[in-house]
Simulated assay, not measured.
Amino acid sequence: MSSDSTIWFINGASRGIGFAVMEKLLATNPSVFVYAGARDPAKALALQQMALKYPGKIEIVKYIAGDIDGNKDIAKVIQEKHGRVDVVLGAAGCGSYLGPAADTPPEVVRTHFETNAIGNLVLFQAMLSLLKASKNPKFIPLSSIGGSLTFTISLPLEVTAYAMRGFTFENEWIVCFPLSPGAVETDMFASNREMDKTGVLENVQDSISPEKCATLLVKIVDECTREKDGGEFVDIDGSKISW
């Protein structure tokens, strides 16, 4: 593997946005190598087919959000094979409940927080030395506009359970920001549309395919800089979302 290769780690890579980004990278960038994280690699048939289509360009690894030892094991695999990681894309997320604060079960919040917040913290810690070994390290967890502290005041969508700037300000050597892919036609979006009682998601007319999202996302990652994007909350169109 050439030292000029770009090494990616993508979790949630077995479907949805994570899979689409991986597919886009492999189809357009001959010098990319992807570590694809999946909760159950043995059942990730689409990933296995992708590995056959692009031999020597993908390694499928078992990823569970918040699993400290499991994340460290992934880092060891990457260390032994490449010694660094250039881009970490956190595409694995949980969005299994919609409801107001008065009705949201605490256990639902715990599950979402474990996956969406603690999961990214554990991943960052596991990948830290590998990111430091990169000449242009980028750590980009996917979020959603539901994670904004201010935007949802005017948005009547009940996202109590879904609600990291510290990574950026504590580490001057890295480009780090949460990225909102917007309304993407994934299984999670379809499920949330069914659960939504406010009508907000039902009326969304500008949702995009995972493939379109992947094209926009890869462009943002390729062009992002610490000066322009570090510590911001970035939308898939490149604009900034209010924290």
Rank of each mutant, 00 (worst) to 15 (best):
Glu194Gln: 15
Thr225Glu: 01
Ile220Pro: 04
Thr225Ala: 02
Asp196Ser: 00
Ile208Cys: 00
Asp229Ile: 09
Asp206Ile: 02
Ser207Asp: 02
Glu202Asp: 12
Asp206Phe: 01
Val200Ser: 07
Glu227Tyr: 06
Gly230Tyr: 05
Ala190Gly: 08
Met188Tyr: 04
Asn192Leu: 13
Glu194Leu: 12
Ser207Arg: 07
Lys228Thr: 15
Met188Lys: 07
Pro210Gln: 00
Gly199Asp: 06
Asn192Trp: 00
Val221Leu: 15
Ser191Ala: 14
Ser209Leu: 07
Gly199Ala: 07
Met195Phe: 09
Ser209Met: 11
Val221Phe: 04
Leu217Asn: 11
Asp229Gly: 07
Glu194Ala: 14
Phe189Val: 06
Ile220Tyr: 09
Thr225Cys: 03
Thr225Pro: 05
Gln205Thr: 15
Asp196Val: 01
Lys212Ser: 11
Glu185Cys: 06
Asp229Trp: 14
Asp187Arg: 14
Leu216Phe: 00
Lys197Glu: 01
Thr225Arg: 02
Lys212Glu: 13
Glu211Arg: 14
Glu202Gln: 12
Asp222Arg: 15
Val221Asn: 09
Glu211Pro: 10
Met195Leu: 12
Asp187Met: 13
Ser191Cys: 13
Glu223Ala: 02
Met195Arg: 12
Val221Gln: 04
Gln205Ser: 12
Met188Asp: 01
Ile220Phe: 03
Lys219Asn: 13
Met195Trp: 05
Ser209Glu: 12
Lys212Ala: 08
Glu223Asn: 11
Gly231Lys: 09
Cys213Trp: 05
Ser207Gln: 08
Cys224Met: 09
Lys212Asp: 11
Lys228Cys: 15
Glu185Asp: 15
Lys219Gly: 06
Thr225Met: 04
Asp222Phe: 06
Lys212Ile: 13
Ala190Phe: 08
Met188Gln: 10
Lys219Glu: 14
Lys197Trp: 02
Glu227Phe: 09
Leu201Ile: 09
Asp187Val: 08
Glu223Lys: 13
Asp229Cys: 13
Gly231Thr: 04
Lys197Ile: 01
Val218Ser: 11
Lys228Met: 14
Arg226Cys: 06
Glu211Gly: 08
Leu201Pro: 02
Asp229Pro: 00
Glu211Met: 07
Lys228Gln: 14
Thr215Ala: 10
Gly231Ser: 05
Cys224Leu: 07
Val204Phe: 03
Leu217Asp: 12
Leu201Lys: 02
Asp206His: 03
Thr186Gly: 04
Thr215Pro: 02
Asp222Gly: 13
Met188Ile: 14
Asp229Asn: 15
Lys197Met: 02
Glu227Thr: 10
Phe189Trp: 15
Val204Ala: 04
Arg193Asp: 01
Ala214Ile: 12
Ser207Asn: 11
Gln205Arg: 14
Asn192Thr: 00
Glu194Ser: 11
Ile220Lys: 06
Leu201Cys: 00
Gly231Asp: 06
Val200Ile: 12
Cys224Gln: 08
Asn192Ser: 04
Ser191Arg: 14
Glu202Lys: 13
Thr198Glu: 04
Asn203Gly: 13
Leu216Ile: 02
Asp196Gln: 00
Thr215Arg: 10
Glu185Gly: 03
Val204His: 04
Asn203Val: 03
Phe189Met: 15
Gly231Trp: 03
Ile220Arg: 07
Val204Gly: 00
Glu227His: 05
Val200Pro: 08
Pro210Met: 01
Gln205Glu: 15
Thr215Met: 05
Arg193Gln: 04
Thr186Ser: 10
Met188Ser: 05
Gly231Tyr: 05
Thr225Gln: 01
Gly199Lys: 10
Val184Lys: 07
Met188Pro: 03
